[in-house]
Design a protein around this nucleic acid. Structure first.
Lengths: 206, 206
DNA sequence: ATTATCTATAGATCTATAGATAATGC
DNA sequence: ATTATCTATAGATCTATAGATAATGC
């Protein structure tokens, strides 16, 4: 018995996060995570029972950590359009800035897997954070007033956060591959962000 | 010895194509493909030697089949902008129309995997089709005249064909999930196609 | 004799667990 | 006594191959 529990659990979580982000759920291996963490692989089961559990723990924890960041963006009373902008900027700062692999991960491991998608939507839906719930009322008002199409609260937030993931992932992959000139990739990215904002607004107009 | 070789090989190819499209390379299983095809799984190895080989065979065959479709779109002498439009329409008709899973497959199995990406780019690069090679010259002229940014011939074609895959896949996934109202998804798709055209043109402007 | 097919199984890999061991706290 | 850790291994799954068998063509 060398480390205290806090430490080992945290080390495993970090190693697992890196492995899952890099390889995706299916290609991530428990033995490989253990090797990264420098512990016997039985420890992963000791703390998290199963691979699936370990993965879901990470997703939930990370999302919980993220909520306060969005809370701030949702607090203001300005027009919906500006709130959308703020949420998307928060997403850029706190989610995408972590790694260029993030958009791809979001798409393949969350959007493409119904269980994970639902799980995270539930986190948003059930969060007790004040601003988040206040924004829920605001959103429903706007819908009632006919300013927005009918859409679920959590789905709305989720749409804002994940929408760019799909379009950005391919460009980031292309950039990584080095096949396209870097300026072309950067130009694509830049233009995409502008357009995406407009596309979301169009789609939500009643 | 029941079937002739032509038949079994074809049946395996079709079963494998369906399995790979549905589950992706890692999650596709040789036993499952054999079950779909109704043959002993040793037959897959008899004809294709390995899983990897089977997968690459499918990719290459499909791409070869596709080339003539693009050939037509590339034949005309009209402005580059219209040629881009035609290639993208051909892509819609012959690639995306096959299955709503196609954009996702394109992104995860081709764009995200350098070996596969390079392999298919080579198919385009080395194709002896007349219109394709004639368009290569046309493209280089346009670049020389300063109408387009410097970009490889195969990369250009590949960009036109695969660009929408990234942005459409998430919307198709959302539609499948049933969480967003269907009109929102359709609206997103429609707007996206228009914008994507503009984004590509912007990125390629010198 | 060659080709296509099947059955059986080797060999690799991966998740999960059993059980032993050592450190800590009461 | 409880908790954290390790080693060893069971059990499942998957790719690949060996070897037997049957049909076809010469």
């Amino acid at each position: 018995m060398k480390n205290n529990e806090q430490n080992t659990e945290q080390i495993i979580l970090e190693a697992a996060e890196a492995e899952f982000l890099e390889k995706g759920y299916s290609n991530a291996k428990m033995l490989s995570i253990a090797r990264r963490a420098g512990v016997a692989h039985s420890m992963l089961h000791y703390y998290f029972r199963s691979k699936e559990n370990l993965f879901k723990s990470i997703l939930q924890r990370k999302t919980q950590e993220l909520l306060p960041m969005f809370d701030e963006a949702l607090a203001s009373n300005c027009p919906i359009r500006e709130i959308i902008q703020k949420v998307r900027e928060a997403r850029d700062r706190y989610v995408f800035a972590k790694s260029p692999r993030m958009p791809y991960f979001l798409l393949t491991e969350i959007l493409a897997k119904p269980e994970n998608r639902e799980m995270l939507i539930e986190v948003f839906d059930k969060s007790p954070m004040v601003q988040l719930q206040r924004f829920r009322e605001r959103l429903n008002q706007e819908i009632a007033q006919g300013n927005l199409r009918e859409i679920g609260f959590a789905d709305f937030i989720f749409l804002l956060i994940t929408f760019d993931a799909s379009s950005l992932s391919a460009i980031l992959l292309a950039k990584e591959s080095g096949r396209l000139p870097e300026e072309v990739c950067d130009k694509l990215m830049e233009t995409y962000r502008e357009h995406n904002m407009q596309i979301i607004l169009d789609a939500l107009r009643p």
